[in-house]
Design a protein around this nucleic acid. Structure first.
Lengths: 273, 273
DNA sequence: CGCATCCTTGAGTGATTTCAAACATAGTGG
DNA sequence: CCACTATGTTTGAAATCACTCAAGGATGCG
């Protein structure tokens, strides 16, 4: 099912003007120009004289795009599909850092130190564009605007991580999960899908790792949101009923258990008086 | 006291070759060359024909170097002193993102979006070098190695934040505080100070914000480390006795209370058998 | 169909926070 | 010089949020 869904998505993205021409309806797109790349990544810039063609590569769900320690020479841009990038800590535990999807760049962490310090894995079938770093920098050398755009993208990534740090440092589990759903909703909407109804491509454990929670807490929080009618959950299928509540949520409204405890305390106060 | 300390530090850094010449013993250094900058930031690269002089600016403790929303045009490099950079969330709460010190760059988050999205404040008197972003990029345009070095620095920052995310997501409060101390120790040692005896320049609240903990938890954890002899704490004065323990610590050895609970459970088991 | 993986839910525990009070330090002005 | 204040630190006690452990249900795959 996920596979079918993904291939649909790939076909949609292929509606863009393509030099390949006639045979794209069945075959995945194999090459992109720099201006294709820029519009995909969301950069206003269109460098004119872009003769270089960037290669596309298809990955199946579960395949690794790059691993930790592998020599760095490529950046990657997601054209379709869903992935996760992870760090491995000294105990061998996986820490999910992001879920790259259409328009996202990954592999940036390899620039410093000449090798990747994360690995990224396809969660679904994917179409990924290879961007040789050498090519990018040499093009940047002749096109100042491209250089600036690249800086902006790196900076955007940096700010995203800062925001994540802030989230992990200050929000409750409910708020984190709520924000995660809002984020997914927005991304799906931007990709032209429904922002209120979608399938999660990652497991509860992966979400938990990403948000600094256990998989049980993630599951329970989904259930709680379901119980108060903000969303509907059925396994990986999510339906958002009240996006605004998710956006502003800081803590869950009192559960029945909590209300009962409050009432008990109140009655004890009354007895004391 | 802090002021005196800081000015000493400034003098040390001035041991580098300086065009200013004779009058540096009393006056802070006012200009740096690109090669000064590179060695300060820890980049092997020395661009030869660096005619441009980068201005130094002195800030007093408490002063703001840049604020959120302010138009971006500068990067900053710390020559001496200690600072904090913070984000403000939608409730107006401060989230500490880093504690820039000698050799650190800040202001990078302004590149994308043309304005800073963090603010940085001097915790002590500081000497900060202004790096106009325009100048940096135009120099990078003629010096490929400088360009590469700049990319490396941005990437290093990115990896640092990823590591922070991993820390916040997976470590206990004790492990976070321990790592923070190890980090400070290393930085102080790199700056030529004692790595085992130093004064904290930030409050418990700031440390807590940085580590995603409350100030009480930070204080208690310091006290606990003190109790088991790993460090000595007296207000802001820290002395590290067992760096290796801090480095490898994952959870605190059982407290007396915990030992008691264990013993209780064991005796109950014995009774049951 | 049976296995492997993922998800849900409950019960109990414990780590961290919250609330509160006392102590420490530095700066200020009488 | 000494209150006096403001800010920061320590510590205790109680509450609570999130985790751990455990079992059962759902789904997909060979």
């Amino acid at each position: 099912m996920l596979t079918a869904n993904t291939s649909t998505q790939a076909r949609v993205s292929l509606a863009m003007p393509s030099p390949a021409g006639a045979n794209w309806s069945r075959q995945p797109k194999l090459w992109s120009t720099m201006s294709d790349l820029c519009s995909l990544v969301g950069i206003a810039e269109a460098v004119v004289e872009d003769s270089f063609q960037f290669q596309h590569v298809q990955f199946k769900a579960g395949q690794r795009i790059h691993t930790i320690g592998q020599p760095f020479d490529m950046l990657y841009v997601v054209n379709s599909g869903f992935l996760k990038t992870v760090m491995i800590d000294e105990l061998g535990n996986e820490q999910v850092l992001s879920f790259p999807m259409k328009g996202d760049i990954f592999g940036i962490d390899g620039i410093h130190g000449k090798q990747y310090c994360t690995e990224t894995v396809a969660l679904t079938n994917c179409d990924v564009i290879l961007v040789p770093f050498k090519i990018l920098t040499s093009l940047g050398r002749t096109h100042a605007s491209l250089e600036a755009a690249f800086h902006a993208v790196m900076c955007r990534e940096l700010v995203r991580e800062q925001t994540m740090i802030s989230t992990l440092g200050s929000l409750t589990s409910e708020a984190r999960v709520a924000r995660f759903l809002v984020y997914l909703s927005q991304r799906f909407a931007e990709m032209g899908y429904s922002g209120t109804q979608f399938n999660l491509r990652m497991t509860r454990a992966e979400i938990g790792s990403y948000l600094g929670l256990t998989l049980e807490t993630v599951s329970r929080t989904f259930s709680a949101f379901n119980a108060i009618g903000v969303i509907s959950v059925d396994q990986k299928a999510i339906q958002i009923h009240d996006l605004e509540s998710l956006r502003t949520l800081r803590r869950l409204p009192p559960s029945r258990a909590r209300v009962r405890a409050e009432a008990r305390r109140a009655s004890m106060d009354a007895m004391a008086a």
